[in-house]
């Protein structure tokens, strides 16, 4: 069997990729994809820890991951709606276009 730290390592790498995408890409859709990757990395952590727990009586980790997926779905729906709204207003999905929210 694969030890726990390898899963964690993969999770960390996935998280890093997602973060890099969020921080560097200007296309809103790609930013959302990055966010999804980060969420999946967290889910992987949940599952991995759940599987490697000493007592395996309950399904807590699984359920956490499931709720995270649900929240992610809601978040994607709202995020994409925002992107559509942005596109309608600016004819672009470039996040740098939307900078009215400044001090």
């Amino acid at each position: 069997m694969v030890p726990l730290d390898q899963y964690l390592l993969l999770s960390a790498l996935l998280f890093g990729i997602g973060l890099a995408g969020v921080l560097t890409r200007r296309n809103g859709i790609i930013v959302l994809i990055g966010v999804e990757l980060m969420l999946n990395a967290a889910n992987l952590n949940f599952i991995a820890f759940w599987r490697h727990r000493a007592d395996t009586g309950a399904a807590d980790g699984l359920l956490f991951a499931m709720f995270a997926i649900g929240v992610a779905a809601a978040e994607v729906a709202v995020g994409l709606a925002l992107i559509i709204a942005l596109y309608r207003a600016r004819r672009s999905v470039n996040l740098d276009e939307a900078k009215e929210l400044k001090g």
């Binding site: 726990l4 395996t56 699984l62």
Partner: peptide, 18 residues
């Protein structure tokens, strides 16, 4: 750096009860 415990993990039953 641990291996997972032996035996099957909780299944659908536990998920449904949770």
């Amino acid at each position: 750096a641990v291996k997972p415990p032996e035996g099957p993990p909780p299944g659908m039953r536990q998920i449904g009860e949770g």
